[in-house]
């Protein structure tokens, strides 16, 4: 236990010493920079070179200090474990036997293996650098948990290494912000939403059948004769009933569009005129043949109109 206390205090003393050393050097650097800015009699290039050299030296020293602290920690840890293992030889032996069974091809005797395993375990524990044998080493350490020095060494070494690692993830929000921005800007789905304005186009075909809608092209009625139109008075009730019948009557008339074609009455009339002229010219046979043909056409096309045509003839 006394060893552990000495180890901790030694490391602390080392850190304090190096802290003072670094502080002094930093103060000197600041002074040199101040001189560089104020005293124009000094050669600036020379001062800058000195500052640069001092910074490099400090950097090298800092890395050396880390190694020294680590080495000191390792040294104290190794001593502590060796001491512990002497006390708990029974527990460790089982682990050594396990390692031997794990194909330690070197074939050392059990006692030498025991020493190797115990000395290596704190190293793997303190130095974060991973070895291929780290897994097996950790197993060994876990069985030798009663080693008192291990918990104290861990925080000393982990502090300087973990701090910069933790500080890096602070960039996470910076990364997340730019990613969200394009996601928001991407909702150029507005055109996609505007496309369903084609719905009216879909609805139009439904209105194609009836001619009744005011929005549609107006139905045209063309009157070619000057004959007077027939008119009649109807009461409101009758008017309403007539109007209500529009849909059904329109469907009825739509179903008979084939029969709504303009009859060839005009054509027949023109043929009648031609036949009459032929008769007047004395071409009786030709005129009679034409009359027969007209009569046939008249019967075929429209029986109801045949009376009119015959009268006209």
């Amino acid at each position: 236990m006394g060893l552990k206390k000495n180890h901790v205090s030694t490391v602390k003393d080392l850190k304090a010493t190096f802290f003072d050393l670094f502080s002094d050097h930093i103060e000197e650097l600041v002074e040199m920079i101040r001189l560089l800015a104020t005293d124009k009699t000094i050669d600036p290039v020379q001062i800058e070179t000195l500052i640069f050299q001092r910074i490099v030296m400090l950097n090298d020293t800092a890395s050396s200090v880390k190694n020294v602290v680590t080495d000191v920690s390792h040294l104290y840890s190794a001593s502590g474990i060796k001491l512990k293992n002497n006390k708990s030889r029974v527990n460790v032996s089982s682990d050594i036997e396990r390692m031997q069974s794990n194909n330690n091809s070197v074939g050392f005797p059990a006692e030498s293996n025991r020493e190797i395993s115990t000395t290596m375990s704190p190293i793997t524990n303190s130095s974060v650098t991973s070895n291929a044998t780290l897994g097996t080493m950790k197993q060994v350490v876990s069985t030798t948990a009663p080693v008192a020095s291990q918990p104290t060494t861990a925080p000393v070494i982990s502090q300087p290494t973990t701090v910069p690692i933790i500080s890096q993830p602070t960039t996470v929000p910076i990364i997340s912000q730019p990613t969200t921005a394009p996601v928001i800007s991407q909702p150029t789905t507005a055109p996609v939403i505007s496309q369903p304005t084609t719905v009216p186009v879909v609805s139009q075909p439904t209105t194609a059948a009836p001619v009744s809608n005011n929005n549609e092209k107006k139905v045209k009625f063309v009157k070619k004769s000057s004959n007077k139109v027939k008119a009649i008075l109807v009461t409101n009730k009758q008017y309403g009933k007539l109007r209500n019948s529009y849909a059904s009557q329109f469907n009825l008339i739509s179903a008979n569009v084939g029969n709504m074609a303009v009859p060839s009455r005009e054509k027949l009339e023109s043929l009648m005129k031609k036949a009459s002229s032929l008769y007047k010219e004395g071409k009786v046979s030709e005129a009679q043949a034409l009359y027969a043909e007209i009569s046939k056409m008249n019967k075929q096309l429209n029986k109801s109109d045949s009376k009119v045509l015959i009268k006209a003839a």
């Binding site: 139905v219 045209k220 009625f221 063309v222 009157k223 070619k224 004769s225 004959n227 007077k228 139109v229 027939k230 008119a231 009649i232 008075l233 109807v234 009461t235 409101n236 008017y239 007539l242 569009v257 709504m260 074609a261 303009v262 009859p263």
Partner: peptide
């Protein structure tokens, strides 16, 4: 009684419109 005057004409389908005959 505000009776409505209605007109009636015969119609024939002719191209894209209706031809009226009285």
């Amino acid at each position: 009684n505000n009776n409505h005057v209605i007109y009636i004409s015969r119609i024939y389908k002719e191209n894209d419109c209706f031809r009226i005959e009285e």
